[in-house]
Computed example of a mutant assay.
Amino acid sequence: MGKLIVTENITLDGVIQDPTGEEGLGRGAWSQMGPLDQAAWAEFFTDEALDVEAMLLGRRTYEYFAGRFPSRTGVWAERLNSMPKYVVSATLEAAEWNNSTVLTGDIVDDVSKLKETLTGDLVVYASGRLVPTLLEHDLVDELRLMTFPCVLGAGQHLFGETGEQKPQRLVGNRTIGDGLVLLTYQRAN
């Protein structure tokens, strides 16, 4: 059984919404990086994709990725295009992106079964509506927070209310490029 890993681009104040400025939050593209940061960021995400068995995505994130990656080239794009992808959605009827499966049942049951059947790790990118549910039900084994040096002051936060505390243990921190910090946490129970 592999781990369920959530990897998020996040601001210092915990915002995950609208990193490219395309969603209309009105705070600009907070994920803009210099060349050194961009290269190190891309290397991290490429290495991560090569290390995991599959992706789990919410519908909106799936549609974002599916609208961009099939036409891209390079190691990262080729890996994302070829790996198994699972999409949690109550509205998506068919997933067109290569190797994609729509999960329409109970999220907790479906993801629990998926974790049991996979031998490698399962990564969740973005998916701001899905991640809180996974956290609430203790399905997340590891959080990887790619922290951008920006206080946005508005927008959707990764962590909302939970039914109880969700203790985490810091297991890694490193600088990515010259301005990003990757914080890695595992569930502390």
Rank of each mutant, 00 (worst) to 15 (best):
E142N: 10
S127Q: 07
G58Q: 01
L114F: 14
G155H: 05
A188F: 03
P35G: 06
T73C: 11
E63R: 09
C150W: 13
A49V: 06
R68G: 00
Q17P: 10
R27W: 12
T11F: 02
V140Q: 04
M146Q: 08
L145E: 15
M55S: 01
K115F: 11
R60P: 00
G153E: 04
N9M: 03
P167F: 10
E78V: 00
L170A: 08
I10H: 05
S89L: 13
E63T: 08
P167T: 00
A29L: 01
L36V: 12
G24F: 01
G155L: 08
T184P: 08
F45E: 13
V15E: 08
L56D: 00
W97N: 14
E136Y: 04
D18G: 13
A154L: 05
S100N: 14
D13K: 04
F65W: 07
A154K: 02
G163V: 03
E48K: 05
L143G: 15
Y62N: 01
I5N: 10
T11K: 01
A154D: 06
M33C: 07
V52H: 14
L143D: 14
Y64N: 15
L180C: 03
G105H: 06
A94M: 15
G160L: 01
G179L: 06
E96Q: 06
M83N: 09
K115V: 04
E8K: 03
E8T: 00
L180K: 05
S112F: 12
D110V: 15
T101F: 09
N99S: 04
E116S: 12
N173P: 15
L180E: 10
L182G: 04
G153C: 08
D138E: 07
K166D: 15
L50A: 09
K115Y: 09
L92P: 10
T117W: 13
G163K: 05
D18Y: 11
D47L: 12
H137I: 14
N81E: 14
G28S: 09
F65Q: 00
T117H: 13
W76L: 03
E53M: 02
F44K: 01
D106M: 14
L36N: 12
L57G: 05
A126E: 08
Q17R: 12
G14P: 13
L158I: 02
V87E: 13
D47Q: 11
G172K: 09
T73Y: 13
T61D: 03
E22K: 09
K3M: 14
W76Q: 07
D37R: 07
D138T: 01
G2S: 13
W76N: 04
T175L: 03
E164C: 12
V6D: 05
E48C: 00
E22F: 01
R187G: 11
R79V: 15
L183D: 01
G120Y: 01
V88D: 02
D178V: 10
L182R: 05
E43N: 07
T175Y: 08
D178N: 10
E48Q: 10
T91G: 10
N189C: 10
A66V: 05
Q165K: 11
R72N: 04
G26M: 02
F65R: 04
G128C: 10
G128V: 12
S71D: 03
M146N: 02
F148E: 06
V171I: 15
A29Q: 08
T133K: 05
T7Q: 09
S127N: 06
E23V: 04
T11W: 00
Y125K: 11
T7H: 12
V15H: 09
V6P: 06
G153K: 05
E93F: 14
